[in-house]
Amino acid sequence: MTRLAVAGVGAISPAGVGVSTLAEATTLGRCVAAGPISETNVAVLKKIRRSAAITLYAATAVEEALRDCGVSGFADCALISGVTNGALNFSADFHHTLVTEAKETASPTLFSESVLNAPAGNASIIFNIRGPVYSIIGGQSIAIKALMLAATLIETRRAQRAIVVCAEERNELSSFCYSRFNPKAARVFSEGAGALLIEPVDERRPINPVELCTITGYAAYTIPGSPHLALQRAIDGALSMADLEAADIGVAVSDYKTATLFREIPTLSFSDCLGYAFCVSTMWNIILAAMACGGGCPVNPLFAAGLKKYAKHSEINHVIIYAAEEDGDASAIILSRVGASS
């Protein structure tokens, strides 16, 4: 496996623009009123002012991650966008036009900006990304699957580096439907985006001031109707790839509620702070874990607090982030501190 480094991160959430706001909110345990996001990156907005909110969020997060990695020129970069629902508000407006107004007057912008690859397409245009550009669709697992796809592209030399972004926007209809499907979850729906830039370790530029972490293992597995079993297979696969035992993991991060996977390891969730934003929630978890692995970043106190009763884990070397859906789709990824060994 090619050793991959997380070399840049970016985010926008109800906490604000930038990973620092994400980290601050979760570190302090400050509950953020979930969406809609009122603030975006003005420089990015100018170029896509007619786009859907999901595209604005994706572009904002990508811009920060690219800036964070300290590289200019992304022609050989891949861009993988993970999406659960897409531009639901533009889609609803377009449907509304077809039902209530003169059909032939439907706006071309509403259509082209509501397609599922609009966030990726627009981001590739804004940032001149000419490598493979993919949009992949799924639930919470899709953030990890997008990273797996990016890793494959780099390993097979179809791209030198890859930026992975997940974005979602709030929508009244979808919030209503998801609440009805799963009323016990009592979720506060959220929106935003998270982006991560990965590249081979040996090609990393020394100008990046923060050593974040390396991706050491990942796996995804689907068993219809058996999310718990699928998740166990995914976690086992990720541990095997990383050549680690479960006991090597310092912290687990997930919004999937299960008590039995890691009895001795603290499992953290940030959705109480940031709300539930589908695949973006998993991406935020990965970003926060990457920052924790990086050391010296503001999110560390949160992990330290979570570790208090686990004295043997005084230092986090490896973090596992996992996600699973009730339909049986699960995935897991392991981030490791740079230089940490199994």
Binding site: V83, V115, L116, N117, A120, G121, V133, Y134, S135, I136, I137, G138, K145, L149, A220, Y221, T222, I223, P224, D329
Partner: peptide, 11 residues
């Protein structure tokens, strides 16, 4: 089926 899946939406 068991395994994994990916759904691409690249127009």
């Amino acid at each position: 089926l068991t395994g994994d899946y990916t759904v691409f939406s690249d127009a």
